[in-house]
């Protein structure tokens, strides 16, 4: 479903991705873990079409991914790490606008909107201006938008940081449902517990490349060290190598 090969992205003065390679299957929830500045957000931004890579190849659903191609971007939905929204639209208007951009038919979007506003417990904000939303409510709206367009590749960058635990649990269940539908979910987070809860596979990214991949069966096995240990070992090992 998603295949990244040797993707490089440089910013002035630093390299964000230094040959990132990734292969995620349909229906898989893949979590990117890593220290600050490791390249998690850059990976998601490239896949969302917000920026271009300098070299490397990306395939989504078996087709070469080109950010200029609207058909490629139609398969992808992105929830950014910062709850960026148009402040002077109401919750419903914002979601409608987003659905328009993805060409969701009127009949379907209505039922999906009703469902997600209720499911994520913020229907009372439906007709309220986004500028009056709390950070958590903004994140709920971002999630609603991304989930309602039913993308093939769902990109989430720290989407549950400000969301309350009960809704967070619902979102995690929803992500599993999305995966069962056949969608690929790529998730970037710092929260190890969240990663352990939802991921089928975890990639630990350091200095712009995946240094270690761990499957759920590995970290859940009683003989294996826990996720925190895996994370610490990978990052520290890399730092020693760097030194």
């Amino acid at each position: 479903m998603l295949k990244m090969e040797s993707v490089v992205k440089r910013y002035p003065g630093r390299t964000a991705l230094s040959g990132m390679s990734l292969d995620v299957s349909p229906g898989e929830i893949y979590v990117l873990l890593g220290p600050n500045g490791a390249g998690k957000t850059t990976t998601l931004r490239i896949l969302a079409g917000l920026t271009d890579c300098d070299s490397g190849v990306i395939h989504v659903a078996g087709e070469l991914y080109r950010r200029e191609d609207p058909q490629c971007r139609r398969r992808v939905a992105y929830v950014p790490d910062q709850p960026f929204l148009y402040s002077r639209l109401t919750g419903e208007e914002h979601a409608q606008f987003y659905a328009d951009l993805y060409g969701i038919p009127e009949t379907e979007r209505r039922s999906r909107l009703d469902f997600f506003f209720n499911h994520l417990e913020f229907s009372e904000y439906r007709h309220e201006l986004v500028e009056h939303f709390s950070t958590g409510t903004r994140q709920k709206l971002l999630l609603t938008q991304a989930l309602m367009v039913q993308p093939q590749l769902l990109l989430l960058d720290e989407p549950l940081v400000s969301v309350d635990p009960l809704v967070s649990r619902k979102v995690k269940a929803r992500l599993r449902k999305e995966a069962r539908r056949g969608a690929t979910v790529l998730f970037a987070t710092h929260l190890l517990s969240l990663a352990a809860d939802v991921a089928d596979r975890i990639g630990i990214i350091v200095n712009g490349a995946i240094q270690r991949e761990i499957t759920a069966s590995t970290w859940r096995s009683p003989e294996s060290p826990d996720l925190e240990e895996w994370y610490a070992r990978t990052v520290e090992a890399h730092e020693i190598l760097e030194d």
């Binding site: 969302a48 079409g49 917000l50 058909q71 992808v76 960026f84 929204l85 148009y86 951009l101 993805y102």
Partner: peptide, 13 residues
């Protein structure tokens, strides 16, 4: 457009 433009840039539009 502010930061909200991110949705336009990442959309299929």
């Amino acid at each position: 457009e502010g930061d909200g433009v991110i949705h336009v840039l990442a959309s299929p539009a």
